[in-house]
Design a protein around this nucleic acid. Structure first.
Length: 480
RNA sequence: CGGGGCGUGGCGCAGCCCGGUAGCGCGCACGGUUUGGGUCCGUGAGGUCCCCGGUUCGAAUCCGGGCGCCCCGACCA
């Protein structure tokens, strides 16, 4: 990596990102254009994301299920805005079983339609509500340009689909799940996301309202990292999802959907990475501690490996994910660099000197060079590791938060906004513009409205474009 | 679909302008050396130079045509 430092220039950063994704063994280039190959190390990060989310979904009463990969083309057409939004990027199966199908099957780009069709059968009475379902699945959207994890033709995600009796319940669900995402992003992924509502233009095809968590990457670009949609009664009407209320009147349900994808893996890479490669938050790191043994002679090796194995077991018993790098053909120095590149939060070095003194060296990945090194006694290893992992988890979040806050600027005029965007930062502005105004901003600055943040950092004021006084505050940024 | 670039061992590239029988780095295999911050040395395996046609005694190199891929933009989790 020495020849390619992370810089604030997105062009360099993109190169850094691609290289690190492949070198750290998160993914492999796919023989099928734009599709995914996630390698074991990258997949384990995804599994960490899955378990963090699944735990939260269970706590909010959601249950997992699985729906078909194929969707009859006619389903997609039933919700007007939905077709319009997705049709350009659909992959369609026209032949199967050796002959042309009567009705083409779409490879799901998202499952509102099939799940809506199923829900209409499942739901009869208000007693069946709320219906809270999640599915872990892969979906396909034939994107024009792809990047590993951030945008691939096929990606893995979870999509939650719920049905409720009232608008308010659906709205509460939509907001709750956004909060779940934010909680996960902040506390597990150490990414200080900003929650807010999407503009009309950025809204999900067919939704009443779309909420988002927006993350700032190390090159200051924004990444939409999860979304939650209040679908109103649009899909309920299109798929005839109705229930009989207590007063014996038939009503349409109010539905929601929300999703978070393997893009989150890319978000972790881009939000924390540095010149040396990945920096993984301990909660998501496949290996939290890597133990590198150091020895010269065979006698030294057996003494060192005994101590190493003892410590590994100790950590393992405490639920700490520890890995011993037993490679004989690689020097310790090589291993240090290798694991730093792969983002392991903590490295434990044990050599003959340490064995003699009952010591070990711990090196944390979040701090540069010597600053991160600490001598500990082997007896206190578990405690020290536990303490440092917690500190690293916190420090990554704080580091990212500081970075984020330094690069969001409040602006009072359109000129100011252009300058801030031009410089690469995010601009926070009073906004009361039309769709056309929003498009104009995109055209002229390259920035889009990431969201109208829930957390207000700005007083009512004049819209930077229309000049009308408004309470609305929008966050503008260039996005991935 | 618009603009730019590139196709040469597994990967990254040089060679092309000015034709002469294919080279470098990484990786891989084997041997030795080294191991507290990316060891070093030696030996070796591995190539239809994207495809088709033309010019020529001779084409990776020149000419014509085709194909593929990447990057920037439009679309997007």
């Amino acid at each position: 990596m020495s020849e390619q430092a992370v810089t604030a220039q997105s062009e360099d950063f993109s190169r850094w990102y691609n290289e690190i994704v492949y070198r750290a063994d998160l993914a492999a280039p796919s023989p099928v254009r734009g599709c995914v190959i996630i390698k074991p190390y990258g997949y384990e990060i995804w599994e960490g994301i899955k378990s963090g989310l699944d735990r939260r979904f269970k706590a909010t009463g959601h249950q997992n299920a699985y729906f078909p990969l194929f969707i009859p083309e006619s389903y997609i057409r039933r919700e007007a805005q939905h077709v319009e939004g997705f049709s350009p990027e659909l992959a369609v199966v026209t032949h199967a079983g050796g002959k042309e199908l009567e009705e083409p099957l779409v490879v799901r780009p998202t499952s509102e339609t099939v799940i809506g069709e199923a829900f209409s059968d499942w739901i009869q009475s208000y007693r069946d509500l709320p219906l809270l379902i999640n599915q872990w699945a892969n979906v396909v959207r034939w994107e024009l340009r792809t990047r590993p994890f951030l945008r691939t033709a096929e990606f893995l995600w979870q999509e939650g689909h719920t049905a409720h009796a009232t608008h308010d319940e659906a709205e509460a669900e939509t907001r709750q799940m956004l909060d779940v995402y934010a909680d996960f992003a902040i506390n597990d992924a150490a990414i200080p996301v900003i929650t807010g509502e999407k503009s009309r233009l950025e809204r999900f095809a067919g939704a009443l309202r779309t909420y988002t968590i927006e993350a700032m990457m190390r090159d200051r670009r924004a990444l939409q990292s999860g979304t939650s949609h209040n679908l109103g009664q649009n899909f309920a009407k299109a798929f005839d999802i109705r229930y009989l209320a207590e007063n014996n009147v038939t009503e349409h349900c109010w539905t929601t959907s929300w999703g978070l994808s393997t893009r989150m893996v890319g978000a972790v890479v881009m939000a924390h990475g540095d010149d040396k490669g990945l920096r993984l938050p301990p909660k998501l790191a496949p290996y939290q501690v890597v133990i590198v043994p150091i020895y010269k002679s065979d006698a030294q090796r057996s003494a060192v490996m005994d101590a190493v194995e003892r410590l590994r077991k100790l950590l393992d018993c405490q639920g700490i994910r520890a890995h011993v790098d037993r490679r004989e053909s690689q020097s310790p120095g090589f291993k240090f660099n290798d694991w730093e590149m792969r983002g392991v939060p903590l490295r434990m070095e044990i050599g003959p000197r340490d064995v003699r003194n009952n010591k070990a060296v711990l090196a944390r990945r979040d701090l540069p060079g010597r600053q991160g090194k600490e001598f500990i006694s082997q007896d206190g290893a578990v405690e020290a590791v536990r303490r440092l992992l917690a500190e690293i988890q916190t420090s990554l979040l704080e580091d990212a938060r500081r970075f984020r806050d330094e690069h969001i600027q409040d602006v009072a005029s359109y000129d100011e906004m252009r300058a801030v965007i031009e410089a690469g930062d995010w601009a926070r502005a009073n906004w009361d513009g039309s769709d056309e105004d929003e498009l104009r901003v995109k055209d002229e600055t390259g920035a889009t409205i990431r969201c109208f943040p829930f957390e207000r950092h700005k007083e009512p004021g004049a819209c930077v474009l229309s000049g009308r006084v408004t309470e609305n505050v929008a966050l503008f940024a260039k996005a991935y």
